[in-house]
Design a protein around this nucleic acid. Structure first.
Lengths: 251, 251
DNA sequence: AGCATCGCAGTTGTCTGACAACTTTGCCTG
DNA sequence: CAGGCAAAGTTGTCAGACAACTGCGATGCT
């Protein structure tokens, strides 16, 4: 475990991928424009075709290049916009509470309040059953002092599933993964003692009740309050989030 | 331009990448766990090392696998959740109105209504100036019958910038890129003639006015109406979108 | 025995050449 | 002039080899 190469390793293919991406940006190629052939790229970068293919493969995975066998490679999107990432890749993914968490949480807030409202409209009996299951598991975790983080995530995904929109469901899963570390403190020993887990559970039950009742605005409000609570538990400042106007106005 | 391969093309490496990703999920491998060697994967999938390397390369770009020369490949995150993408890679990026656009548009709706509301709270004079510029360019395009799609995108990005949340701004850019083809018809010759461009412009100006006034709920309502209009122009069915309750209720 | 060093097997990274699958182009024929 | 067909060009896949690097055990020295 001595990893000489850890840290800085200018993998050749990485280098070519970066240069190629930069070249696309410099040339201001538009989506649909054709890239040079692999042979040309080999000569230009002075590497073998395997390296070029690996570099192009990465750009393909990033969504900014598409290839068609027999035809060529084409720009599919402006560099960096083919996929959406939250964390900057240079950061440590294991780091808890990364800087800028507040911004990420705000993104989650905007999306999840809408998703919850939509779920209240479209939930089926099956959706309700899944939410009820996750809720029961969290209740059990709460009573026994166990870790209910996974069930917490499952509940929020179940809510997204109830929208019957696969894009929303996948986005919720994505956010859940990215924010997994932020859910840990709530269900830690400290979280149990401080009442964070109980507080979160009450929020979940309010969300659940509103969705079951099919009350769109109540669901939005419950989600908003739950997320504001979660943000406060993380030491963030959820002040000035929209849609709390109505909620706070009514209160 | 006959693209026999358009539509269904189970590229071998794509297939392997998907199966490998699924396998990781089934085995419930945790971050840090080691993957089988390339040789083993070659035998298991019955393909050459080039294909395996291309598949792994894709997972690397997705952020769920890391490789170390001389050591092996390791899981870095739960599969499929390192990045967020909208379009399934088997679709043709040039195809307008891809299937499932309705779901994508709904995602945009939920996000952008919130973003617009937030922008109304946080916009600075500089933000307003940028929005005004984009608006003016669109007005010019409208009068001259030109293509204002790029300025359309710039306006929506300027709104997102006004939230002063870089994550929201990047998400807006991402969505704008992904939905670029859906903006085309509005600014086409047909769109000009049918009054779509003018209608869109009126929506933009209502959004702008609400943001300038700092009226959070009016901004949300204006964005909602604008997006519903855009969806209708694309032949989608924006019925049963939340937050229209309030808007329609007041109307 | 303890320890440092060395070397070897295993793995990923890169190179080379070849063929298969597919697309595009342009000529050629009817 | 339309349609078909062949050839060239491009990406996808295969196979083998070597380079660079890691991990670990063996070896030899103190």
């Amino acid at each position: 475990m001595c990893f000489v190469n850890a840290g800085r390793a200018p993998r050749l293919s990485d280098d070519v991928a970066r240069q190629l991406e930069q070249w696309i940006a410099e040339q201001q190629l538009q989506p649909g424009d054709q890239l040079p052939t692999e042979k040309v790229l080999c000569e230009r970068f002075g590497v073998s075709r395997a390296v070029v293919r690996e570099a192009v493969s990465r750009l393909k995975a990033d969504g900014c290049v598409r290839t068609r066998q027999g035809s060529g490679a084409y720009v599919a999107a402006r560099p960096g916009l083919g996929v959406f990432r939250l964390v900057q890749t240079d950061g440590d993914p294991l780091a808890s509470l990364p800087p800028g968490l507040s911004d990420v949480f705000e993104l989650r807030y905007l999306m999840e309040t809408g998703v919850t409202a939509l779920a209240a409209r479209r939930r089926t009996d099956e959706d309700v059953a899944h939410m009820r299951d996750a809720l029961a598991r969290m209740r059990a975790a709460l009573d026994s002092g166990a870790d209910g983080a996974a069930d917490d995530d499952a509940f929020h995904v179940a809510v997204a599933t109830a929208t019957h929109n696969p894009q929303l469901e996948r986005f919720q899963q994505f956010m859940g993964q990215q924010l997994s570390s932020s859910r840990t403190p709530t269900w830690s020993a400290v979280g149990h003692r401080a009442g964070w887990a109980r507080h979160a559970q009450e929020g979940h039950e309010r969300i659940f009740a509103a969705i079951v009742a099919g009350d769109v605005e109540a669901a939005r409000k419950a989600a908003a309050e739950h997320l504001v609570g979660a943000a406060r538990r993380l030491g963030l400042d959820p002040a000035r989030w929209p849609a709390l106007d109505a909620a706070e106005g009514r209160a």
